[in-house]
Nucleic acid binder design. Structure first.
Lengths: 211, 211
DNA sequence: TAGATTGTTAATCGATTAACAATC
DNA sequence: TAGATTGTTAATCGATTAACAATC
């Protein structure tokens, strides 16, 4: 049987819904409708309803969805109810920026340990986390249930770090280096690439100015 | 007449092609075929050929595309041949990370001036750029052909910075704050959102582990 | 009850992939 | 010439949007 899996565009929109739900919850609002979402996000309400269906929530005609249950269903859906432990390698500006992103806790990501090879960084604290030498990575990974390895090193070192993560049994890699990583098929790699966004922005600028 | 514009997925793939082209050029290789691209990027060669067609390049059967002309056509296509001047607001970790991204010069982006309101930052140099007080933004923008405003401030201040950019006549905003900005229709806004990628990663982890 | 909103099936739209002719 | 690769038209696939029935 072929499982119908959730479309990628839907998955990408889900954090947007989550954000609004948190706001509603904070304000003590109990119900939210697709119209509410639609006005805030400027998305088609039908699309939103479809997206909701993928999370498994059921709503109530004339009222919408209950805010708190919907929030919890979404957190469950993404697996964000139980934070995943992550090791981060590369404490340059980008690594520091990610560490400073306090929001990650809310998004099921717990960066427990950070590494670098730079003698000037090792031992220092960044956002309250002591930078450890990369040598200790493998050992520490054996003793902790590390689910995600975050790569924020220069491109030239990215593959080597990925290899280390794979050897240490880490099942998923979030890669911020502009490198195509080679990993075994059972390892998940998610690549973030700013140049994608810059390309889209550039084209949109060109199209706007041309008019 | 309705212009057929380039699909967004194509635009997002183009920087990948560009990167390989630069490598080939550096190595003095004159020709590149869709097969070459395909092997490197693990993309369908037919898709690559379609993408090439959008850039306007014509290739040569049995040989492929000339590396340098293709690179230039792509740079032209994205408007990256003449770097766009950008002002960046918010010199925290993320802003610094962007400033340190030396690659941007290659990608048609020239961050000429950076701003903050924090007294401890103003006057300091970050990656060789002196941090100016935000008060000077509007005036300086009048005297320089600023095309892109980059927002790397906390969410709470993002809209206010966007307003300043719009008032200063900046036609495009690259927004790294997790905020939905309200701007006039003639202003282009490109939003970067890490939680999207984290959501995709989380779902892929769930799917992999479930198996 | 009437009306608003959900939920689902069908239609449309757009991107990817397949097929194949053109050409160096 | 034969074969590899481009370029284009057609087929497929998947996501979005439309239509409408169900229901509180």
């Amino acid at each position: 049987m072929r499982t119908i899996h959730t479309p990628l565009p839907t998955i990408r929109r889900i954090p947007l819904y989550l954000k609004i739900l948190e706001e509603y919850e904070k304000n003590g609002v109990e119900w939210i409708s697709t119209t509410d979402f639609s006005e805030r996000l400027r998305l088609n309400p039908i699309q939103i309803r479809k997206d909701m269906a993928f999370t498994g929530i059921t709503g109530q005609p004339k009222k919408g969805y209950r805010v708190t249950p919907l929030k919890n269903i979404i957190l469950d859906f993404l697996g964000w109810n139980s934070p995943a432990e992550a090791f981060l390698v590369g404490c340059g500006a980008l690594g520091s920026a990610l560490l400073g992103f306090s929001g990650f806790q809310k998004y099921g990501l717990n960066i427990t340990t950070v590494f670098d090879t730079d003698r000037h960084l090792v031992g220092k604290k960044i956002h309250g986390k002591e930078v450890l030498h990369l040598d200790r990575f493998h050992d520490l990974a054996q003793h902790m249930p590390v689910k995600i390895g975050i790569i924020t090193v220069p491109e030239a070192n990215a593959q080597q770090i990925a290899d280390l993560m794979v050897d240490s049994g880490i099942p998923a890699i979030w890669n911020f280096a502009p490198a195509k990583l080679t990993v075994p098929p059972h390892v998940v790699v998610q690549r973030e690439d700013l140049t994608e966004g810059l390309a889209v922005l550039s084209i949109r600028i060109k199209e706007t100015i041309a008019r």
